[in-house]
Design a protein around this nucleic acid. Structure first.
Lengths: 335, 335
DNA sequence: ATAGGTTATCGAAGCGCTTCGACAGTTTTT
DNA sequence: AAAAACTGTCGAAGCGCTTCGATAACCTAT
């Protein structure tokens, strides 16, 4: 294993000079720099991460806490994680993967041991028990998701309330007066996941303003659950012509069931999904959708964090504006 | 920040004693141990990760390299990643998330810097350019997936060849003589991803042995691509009564198309999927399937790695035996 | 010319931990 | 009763790096 000292010796300079070449924290003459860089290359030198962390009290690692659960759309999580990892790398950071399993203890462990310089938390609940710890710790952190109380925290999320409103507006503009919302699984609402509730708020508020009748039903997803849910909706509101689907695993079942019942999409009923673009374009009908900007969220979170670590940046809530893409699943109301 | 020295002072012992209490590498009297543990608790001490890594040249971190691509079934990746992370924790390791983006450089960086003690590689290609590096480095590693040449490497994977064979056997037993295979996207075969080719080997070999006619068609997945693929298959082999689907995003489209054409599952045609159980049970027909044991693979990989790190264990290839679960999508051949 | 300011480099201290050898005290073996 | 072997603890060295003065060499302005 090659050390800094060996590089220094090989280049005929002192260890500190090599260190300054590496960090750029002091000016170095061009000739010395080149000689050192040459030695580094020849010897195949890689700075030792542990030593560096010890001496500088910076690990250059960002911890990413992902949920254990798989009852919500996993590809979104994955996409965020990948975006976080790649963006972090462009800023010289690596990413430590923590699962929600350890809960608040993980926050303590990572903060206390200096394993990571900062944290990103996904799948934050409205009243998350990890939040007090974050507020107290000196460690910068960013949440992906929005808790009930955001004071002293930095958050990045899609503006789900605006998303809900946007969905209603789109369908209202097309003349739909009766809209049904296929929501996430009941468990998601029970544990007060912010995004689900905020979407609902937006949907309700805007439909009230526009005089739209709105029906919301949680749904486990999958074919059987969707069949039951749909039957109940059509029973209670036979005049329903517009559907907003927030549970991605209910999308395809819904389309299949509608087809089966002889209801054409978009001629008889319109279906609007809140989902990643990939799902919208791969479905059996090309879906009009509000996309979930997973990549953008991951990237944003890292950039906020890096700004904080550099002493720039401050606590703020970044809500990404929703974008609706019209495809082939929505059209004018039929009746 | 609390240090070892402060704990030592608080407990009235030397620093090395505290260290030995923590590591258990030398015997400590019960009274001393308890006093030290008490101090640790009272002061809220957490060992500094960097210092520990430097002094012991062990970071207690396992690097996990996941593919950047999203053309293959992402939930499986995610499930493996989560299994790796949680299993690693039970052995005292954390997980560093690397994306394939950096390629072989990531291997050099992590190996060289001592950032991680060991590596797990996912989505290994048959002739992966990271493999020579792994063979040379002293760092223990485990592959999830099977490259062309496994000498000097430890691999964990589902036995996809046996999986292919098992699929054919199941359909053959039910009397099917003409089987079509809906494969992964063409790109997956082009980059010689081992599992896709090995599945095909198994399918071909066993159908030859059993005198089954087999047709294999790659498929991008999604509704439109599946429609084209299905039309071509039924055109070339109108007598096809059994389908084996390896591309999860083609499953639901296939079922919808068959339904649309008035072919009942399983009465007229049988559909057998190679996919995670979750997909099989959530589909519009409960699918007979060979499950992809993502969790088991992740767990296994970590355990192999930990064994190596402890000086136990050796290079070996672990192929997990496939398990076929009969559900409602396969039945006796109709003709 | 000389004081003051830069620029480029070095030496040394120290980050918080592990680990090795030493040693006193106790137990076992012969 | 002496020799050999443990046990439990300590002190000190050192892991590989960063960073803080210090210092010498070189520029400017007066």
């Amino acid at each position: 294993m090659v050390t800094l000292a060996e590089v220094a010796q090989h280049a005929g300079v002192s260890a500190s000079t090599v260190s300054y070449v590496l960090s750029g924290k002091r000016s170095i003459s061009t000739t010395t720099r080149q000689r050192v860089e040459q030695s580094i290359r020849e010897l195949g030198y890689h700075p030792n991460a542990g030593a560096r962390a010890l001496a500088s009290s910076r690990s250059n690692i960002i911890a990413l806490m992902i949920p254990l659960r798989t009852d919500m759309y996993v590809p979104v999580m994955m996409e965020i994680a990948i975006a976080v990892a790649t963006t972090a790398r462009t800023h010289g950071y690596d990413v430590l993967l923590l699962t929600g399993e350890e809960g608040p203890d993980a926050v303590r462990r990572v903060t206390g041991s200096g394993l990571a310089d900062a944290m990103i938390l996904m799948d934050v609940e409205l009243d998350d028990e990890r939040l007090p710890l974050l507020r107290d710790s000196q460690q910068p952190s960013v949440l992906i998701g929005l808790p009930a109380e955001t004071a002293g925290l930095t958050c990045v999320d899609l503006d789900f309330k605006a998303t809900g409103a946007l969905c209603v507006e789109h369908l209202a503009t097309l003349g739909h007066r009766d809209i049904a919302v296929i929501g996430e699984a009941p468990a998601v609402y029970e544990r007060h996941t912010g995004f689900a509730e905020r979407t609902l708020d937006g949907l309700r508020l805007r439909s009230q303003e526009l005089g739209i009748r709105l029906l919301h039903r949680p749904c486990e997803g999958g074919y059987d659950a969707m069949a039951v849910t749909l039957a109940r909706i059509l029973d209670e509101r036979p005049g329903t012509t517009g559907f907003v689907v927030q549970n991605e695993s209910a999308v395809e079942p819904l389309l299949a069931l509608l087809r089966q019942q002889g209801r054409a999409v978009p001629e008889d009923v319109s279906v609007l999904a809140i989902c990643p673009d990939q799902v919208a374009t791969q479905a059996s009908v090309r879906l009009t959708s509000v996309s979930i900007p997973a990549q953008e969220m991951g990237r944003h979170a890292v950039e906020q964090l890096v700004a904080k670590l550099d002493g720039r940046g401050s606590d703020e809530v970044v809500l990404i504006a929703p974008e609706l893409t019209v495809r082939a699943s929505t059209g004018p109301a039929s009746s």
